[in-house]
Structures are given as C-alpha cells and as structure tokens.
Write a protein that binds this DNA or RNA. Sequence first.
DNA 1: GAGTTTGAAACT
DNA 2: CAGTTTCAAACTC
Length: 759
Amino acid sequence: MDVVSPELNSLLPDEIMDTEAIEDISDSQAHGTNTQSKTTNETTVPMETDTTTSSLPILKQSLATSTTSTKTTNSVSGTTVSTGGLKLSGPFTISAANHQIILNKVATAQASEASKSSATCHQVIKQEGQKLLVTAIGKSGSPIVLQLPNSKAPVGQTSADPKIQTPQFKVVTIGGRPELKPLVGCTTNQMTALQTQQLKAVQIAKKTPTSSAPIKFIITKTVNSKGASPQSQVVAGRVLTQTSSVLPTKTITLTEPIGTSLQSIPGKKIAISPLKTPSKVTVVSVASPTSSAPPKTVTLPVNLALGQQILAVQQSTSASPVKVVSSQATAQNIKPVQSVAVGGVSGSHFKTIIPLATQPNVQQIQVPGSRFHYVRLVTATTASSTVQPSGPSTNSVQTAKPMMVSTGAVRMSVPIVPAQSVKQVAPKPLTTAVQGVSTSQTQQRLIMPATPLPQIQPNFTNLPPGTVLAPAPGGGNVGYAVVPAQYVTQLQQSPFVTLANNSSFSASSGVQTQARLPVNGVSTTESTSRPRKPCNCTKSQCLKLYCDCFANGEFCNNCNCNNCFNNLEHETERLKAIKTCLDRNPEAFKPKIGKGKEGESDRRHSKGCNCKRSGCLKNYCECYEAKIMCSSICKCIGCKNFEESPERKTLMHLADAAEVRVQQQTAAKTKLSSQISDLLMRTTPVIPTGGGRLPYTFVTKEVLEATCECLLERAKCSEQTLQPQAEAERMILEEFGHCLMSIINSAGKAKVDCASINC
DNA sequence: GAGTTTGAAACT
DNA sequence: CAGTTTCAAACTC
C-alpha cells in the first residue's frame, strides 16, 4: 500500500466526485456483499439490529469464556473477543510506509472465494501462507495483503477458543445505540503472555437505525513490555462485533505482535490528499497492492466477521508513533495498558480510526483543495475469517513501528459510543493510566449517523466542508452518512481511544486540529485555539445556514447556542437539515469565497453581496468580511469596497494599525511574562557571567520569612482595626505586592552591584 | 449587556 | 424570481 502523493491526490476529486462511479462501485460491492451476506447469515454474523439486547448475551457469554475477568463491561483484559464464532486475532504490522490499512469486504474474486470457502466462521485468511488478503478497497479493488504471524495456531481456530489469548485489551465501543452496552467481551488467548505483553483492544459498537445489529470493533494491540523498545506498540486490530436478532455477535480481533518489524508496504495506491487544514482529518483508505505485491510487514492475525467494518488508516510519510489510548484499564495482572502507539520515530502523526456504521468498510478520502471528506463505504467480507489468535510465539516483541498514521499533525481519536444515544451508553472511561492521551475529556460519543440519506449520496461535491460520508444503515452494502470533519476531532476528545503519535508526540507541536473542544462546551485538555467564533444561535437549532458552525460543516463546539442540534447527539436531525439545505441550494456548503492563488485579487465571492446600507465597508458585507473587494457579480448599492475607494483604504489602514498595536501589546506581554517567570524561577545563585541573570538568589528563606511576617502583621492590623474581611484581604494582597516589589528591586540592585564588581 | 442595524438565509 | 420574514452577526450606545 502506498500513499499517493499530493499530486496524485489531485486526481482523486474527479473520481470521487463522479457520483455515478461511486454508485457503480457501490453496486459492485453490493453484489459482493450479497454473496457474503448469505455466507454471513449461514455462519454467524448477523447484521446489526436495533436491539442491542440480543448482543448482550453474546457478549456476556464471550466474557464468561474469557479466562480473565473484567471489571467493567467496557473492557476485558487478557481476553479476546469471541462472538458469533467469528474471530480475528493475530499480530499484524504495518510498515511506516503504509498509509493505511483497510479491512474491507473482499472485493477480489480471490477474497470472495475464500470467503465462500470459509462457509462457517472460519477464517478467510490463511495463516499458513503468511499472507492475508483482507480486503479490497475502492475501484482498484486491490486486496490488502496482510502477513499473518508465524503462529502455529490452527488456521481454522475460532474465537471460541478461550485459551488463546492476548494479554491485555482495551475495549472501546464506538457508536451503537444507547441501549447497547458499550462493552465488549474479550477472551484472552494467551495468558502466559500477559506479563510481557499488553494488548489493547478498542471496541467500537455502532448501530444504525435501520440495521438492528450493533457492530463492535475492537482494536487490540499487543505490547511487549520486555521489548527492546518499550514504546513500540502495535495496533493489533480491532474486533468487530455484530449482533443481530438472528445471529450472534461477531467479533474480529486483530492483534499485532510486537516482534514484527515494520516494513513498508509497497502498495498500489492510496489516495488521499493532505488536509487542507490541519484541523481536518483525512483518512485515506489504502488499497493494498495486488496479492503479488510483497506483503508488508503487517502481520495480522485477523478474524473478520461478516459485515464488519475495519478501519481505514492513513499512514503519514514518517512513521511517527501513534498512540491509541483507551481510558479503561484492563484487569488482572497485566500491566496497565499503555496507550497503543503506532508510529515511527519522528513527526507527530496521528491515527484516525473511524467507526463505521452498520456498513463495515469505509474509505475516507479527502479531496485536495476540497474541504470535504469523503468516506466510501465498503461492505465487509462475507466470509467470516477466523484467524488464529496469535500464539505466544507470534506475540514476539516487536520493534515499535507504528501502524497507522495519519497525515501529520492530525490527531484523531476513536469515538466510542453507541450511535444514537450518546448520553446513555457512554462507556466508562478506563481507569488505567494512559500514556500520552488525555482521558479527562468528557465522554463524547461518536455517533455514526445511521440514517440513510440516499439523497445526499449523489451530492458528494456539495457536502458541507469536512463532511465525511459514513455508512448508513439499511442502505444495502454501501451507505453514506454525513459526518463533519470535526466529527473526527470530537473523537479525539474521546477518552476511550486516542490515536496519537508516541513519545515524539509531546514534542511535536505541530499537531493541531480544527476543533478540539468538545461539543457544546465540553472542555478538553488540549488547548487549541478555536479557529472559529462560537455561534449564538437561539432559534435555528444550529441547523440552518444562519449558524456559521453548521454552514461550515462543523459541529458546534464551545458555542453559546441554545437548543443546539448541531452535534453528534442529533445527527439524524442534522443530516436532515443538511439534506434540506442541499435541496435548496446544492452549493450551500461550498465555500463562498473562491480560492485565490496567492493574492486576494483572485478571490471573490461566489454569489456576490447584496449590501444596501453598509457601503460594503462593514463586516455585514461578506466580501468585506472576507477581506476581498466586491466584484461585478455583487448587487450591492453604494459600494465602497473597491480598489480605489478612499474609504476602503482608510479602513484598511486603520485595521492594519490596530493589528500592529495588538501584536505589539501581545509581544510586550509575552516578554514581560517571560521576564517575570525568569525572575521567579531563579532560586539558586547564579554566577555573574554577564549573561543578564541576577547574581544572587533573592528569594531566600530569610526573605520568605520576612515576607510572611509582613503579611501577618498586616493581617493583625486589619484584625485589630476590625476591618471587614474583604478589606483585610485586599490590604494583605497589597502588602504582598509591596514585598514582591522590594524583592525584585533588591535583586536588581544586587545584579548591578555584581556587574560592577566584575567590571 | 441591551438594543439596533444589517444582510444572508429562509420562506411565501 | 421577487417580496417578505427570520435569523444571527455586527455594530452602537
């Protein structure tokens, strides 16, 4: 698999925009799915159903089989999930070169046959050959070849085998309905490895309205603590669990042995363009090269269930470590699970896992130059492939090569929540300490809109910026849901799973996302400036273009709006609103300002303004607000927003001057703050080398005592004079200020004296 | 912060 | 398509 260069990416839009082509693909996939669906039904994996209750027993059962107990329903430690008899487990490694790994339905004939052959829950993939054909993506239909671990476990091993285990799991549940319990049962395949390995599993349960069976994904990564590089982490995979009224839940577990080294997977193509803005998350599905292509080091013990979804991972150019963090700690002896880090050494890279709706496979594509994010859904492979769980041998320590990567600077997290009821089903955050990922954020759920919106499908070009199409339930093999790019960012905030780069992550300041703030006031630990103003909508429910957030294809985030529906919790309404807007104006979500090349002269308002009273010199005017001049298409009256307008020039000068002042003030504040902190931090004597530092420590014990005495004395005075408490506090504070000034002045004098001595 | 102005969006 | 209403941001006080 390869990542397509930006140049190549530029070619994507046309293809993507080709609605017919997409439909064709969908159809083709649908056919494949049909065959698979039969197989699925026969085997064990039912599609999602609305009722989660059916799945619960299965989960419980699987849990019971697990050798280890779990404290919380959300996570099971040391177990692998077995549901529905489908199980994928095995280590896999993705080379840094890989941009993505997508497990999709098997599009190729090979895959289909394999799936058919595996009439039952048995794995589709042959482990023996070390190569696993997981899926085909996109038109290319190129299967992804995964290399199976060398484990000697029987190929046909089903998930039911409780003995095979992977050390630790973190389970993340994504999507799904409220009633669905986030939890996923995992059975540990190898208990012996518990001490040495850590396995994380992310389980994503997702539910679509139409389909009743929730899908759960579990991504597990085994980490060998004893490995040479402790940081090496592997994303083992994810377990998908589907439950339907008919069939038991399926679980797919992908495990990656740490021991395998990353290797670049030469792939065919992948596409996906760099994000227009760092905030936007782009997930590119990568089609694996033909089977003939050398298998990359991805060793996947994969058990695929029918209709299950697999994540698409985009790998950034550099293999920066990515961490997946699950907030929940695993049970038992296992060491606290570290966040799963996948990634290379340098560069901040993040991995995004996008939970899919009922329809399993998703391909996300971002079109270069487009703010839209597209997700192409692909039906899961029909054949339930059961890959042998990676045995202990397979779990050998791997060097930490990250498996997934996203475009640099994008950080994504996997939302885990049952689809429609975010509130109810939110899985509890894991207790285990997670590395590099903040779990403090409020639980946000990624709810995949399950609502089928066939109308929207054709309008790929008109989707709101940052929109991601997610599979819609009930839509057959391929469905689409509109998900704003921010969706992904919200996921980042999810405590459950976070994919981020590893140790280098902290150093990498480049990671920025569009909006890291949680929806509607939920604060996140990450302090990132919000690019857009919060809206204040009161009547539109933020579902009309009046709302800037909605108009920009974003969720409301830290907004001041009332009765906001522009969030994950109201995805259905939101989707309807989007559809309405698109019906009214197919270009409603397109940028109003044409993209200029370099200068502003090339930018202009797509529709032009209609100002009557503002002279187009106030921010009421969309042209002026965008800092562009009105053009011939504007219908404004009394326009003064043209090149030679003296009024405009005056305003521009004023604006520039104001901006300069702000910058100066900011710089001054920064400098002052720096100086103060430098002063205060200086607690040890410094040799007067002329470096501008104070020669002596001026905050000594004596000074502190004196200061405290002064403050106490002031307090006594205030008490004696019967002053009110507030006044007393004020006076004490003033006294403290005086003390501080005295200290600083004394330090300054000391510095001068010292400098003079040195001279 | 409350009220007004403004123009895009929505509606008829 | 035009006129009117609704809406939220921009603006003023």
